[in-house]
Write a protein that binds this DNA or RNA. Structure first.
Length: 439
RNA sequence: GGCGCGUUCGUCUAGAGGCCUAGGACACCGGGUUUUCAUCCCGGGAAUCGCGGGUUCGAAUCCCGCACGCGCUACCA
């Protein structure tokens, strides 16, 4: 059996792939995988990768959609080699080709539209690159279909065939929802007398209810994942693994490694369910793998409106192992930059009697420290205080934590305090003592 | 309804006749490290491989049937 590589080489000299979304909304997370695989195949064959905007249905066009697609492809690092093609600008071209088919007698005009005439006999057979499966359709089960609409625009079927022929696309990588239409396309290629490209129909990506992934599954636009603090490398990695495992068995793979390992023929035939929990885990892995400097920079790019954007560098090492998404940074570190809101309910969660009294002692102990405070002195002093007061060490530090941050969960206490500053820390504790239990 | 595709732990998957009393990852549960959380480490439960027939000494792996799911069935893509 020939590999995909051999099959494709037998077809033409250069591998050309394309991503061909229709601009009916913001770029959807599911289409990332289609774009990614097409990109990888082009890259690993020294081929070219381009963008084609399928905007032949004027009524479904959404303003800003092409820009959103380009922007997110750039963000993901999936770069195009050629200028984007807009099908709406090629109207006359499709009309010419439609006319050609009418002249050849394989298409006819009816009610202002041009229809492809289905052969009454015969079968369409082809081998899909995904799963290397032989797929067969009986022409008898197929119906005539519209090539050119009465408004003069082509349907997807005509536009796909004309464009991918002219662009010399091979292989055609698209979602499996197109599988049923493939006989139409193959027959059209043949009617023109053109070489039929190889097809790779990628299995559908499903929502948790097992229906085709859409907005209502919570898996939404790429831009929203970006806004939520997901990293492009994690998104790419996760999406690539929906239906594909690298032969090396690695759990984490960057784009370069994917280009080395990926093969279309290794992609699954069965649909996959999109599971955001695993994406989140992967995102956390990528965050932890980054250097402090790198993370700081990413965070600064992400936190465009953060009031203390320039001061986050020292905080980054404290949260690196505690955040899964860039956006997690904010709630975890707000108390470091701003005095927190206090709530007696939070203090009540710590099982310590006479809290006000203990807080008073904490305040006094802090005041007794020489500046700069040191970790050893801090820890030893409060361990001793806990012992003297007969309370658990853990509770002691939790009380300090809440007094300083207003929260039960924070990055490491002492390190946080060092960033907040001794003065400010002491002020906060004093204020808590004086206002307790009403804040 | 017609046509097409699919079916291994909850999820992503390994698996190409014996290496499978089915392996890994996420998630979950338990334990350890730890002043919280997280990280890290250790351990655990979790798929009779959709069901039923074959073929074979032997099947998750090959064949047939069925069931179920999904997709398409537009002058949408």
């Amino acid at each position: 059996m020939k590999t995909m590589d051999e099959q494709v080489r037998a077809f033409g000299t250069k591998i050309k792939t394309r991503f061909a979304p229709s601009p009916t909304g913001m770029m959807h997370i599911g289409s990332v995988r289609t774009a990614l695989y097409a990109y990888i195949v082009a890259r690993q064959n020294n081929g070219s990768f381009s963008l084609r905007i399928e905007d032949t249905d004027r009524s479904r066009f959404i303003e800003g959609s092409p820009e959103d697609i380009v922007e997110n492809m750039n963000w993901l690092g999936l770069n195009f080699d050629e200028a984007p093609i807009f099908q709406s600008e090629r109207k006359e071209l499709y009309q010419q080709y439609a006319k050609e088919l009418v002249e050849k007698g394989v298409a006819y005009e009816d009610e202002g539209a041009i229809w492809f005439k289905m052969p009454a006999e015969g079968k369409v057979t082809y081998t899909d690159l995904i799963g290397n499966r032989r797929i067969e359709f009986d022409n008898k089960t197929q119906k005539d279909f519209v090539l050119l609409k009465s408004d003069g625009f082509p349907t997807y079927h005509l536009a796909h065939v004309v464009d991918d022929h002219l662009m010399e696309t091979n292989p055609v990588i698209r979602a499996e929802e197109w599988l049923s239409s493939t006989p139409k396309h193959i027959l059209t290629f043949q009617a023109f007398g053109w070489q039929v490209p190889q097809y790779a129909h990628l299995p559908l990506i499903l929502g948790t209810d097992r229906s085709k992934l859409s907005k209502r599954h919570g898996a939404k636009a790429v831009s929203e994942f970006r806004k939520d603090g997901y990293l492009p490398e994690a998104i790419l990695n996760y999406m690539a693994f929906l239906g594909w495992t690298p032969p090396s068995g690695k759990e984490l793979l960057n784009l370069g490694e994917m280009i080395l390992e990926f093969k279309l023929e290794d992609v699954h035939v069965a649909p996959a369910v999109f599971d955001i929990t695993k994406l989140e885990w992967m995102n956390g892995e990528y965050i932890r793998k980054m250097s402090g400097e790198e993370l700081t920079q990413r965070l600064q790019e992400f936190l465009v409106d953060h009031p203390n954007r320039d001061k986050i560098a020292p905080v980054v090492p404290l949260v690196k192992e505690r955040i899964k998404k860039l956006s997690d940074f904010v709630p975890l570190t707000d108390f470091i930059f701003e005095k927190p809101e206090y709530d007696i309910e939070v203090f009540n969660k710590i099982k310590v009697e006479n809290q006000k009294n203990v807080l008073e002692k904490i305040s006094q102990t802090m005041e007794s420290f020489e500046k700069p405070w040191t970790a050893e002195e801090f820890e030893q002093a409060f361990r001793k205080l806990a012992e003297d007061l007969g309370i658990k060490v853990g509770d002691m530090f939790q009380l300090i934590r809440v007094a300083v941050s207003g929260q039960l969960v924070t990055p490491p206490l002492f390190e946080s305090i060092k960033i907040i500053g001794e003065e400010e820390t002491l002020n906060r504790v004093k204020e808590v003592v004086s206002k307790y239990p009403e804040f």
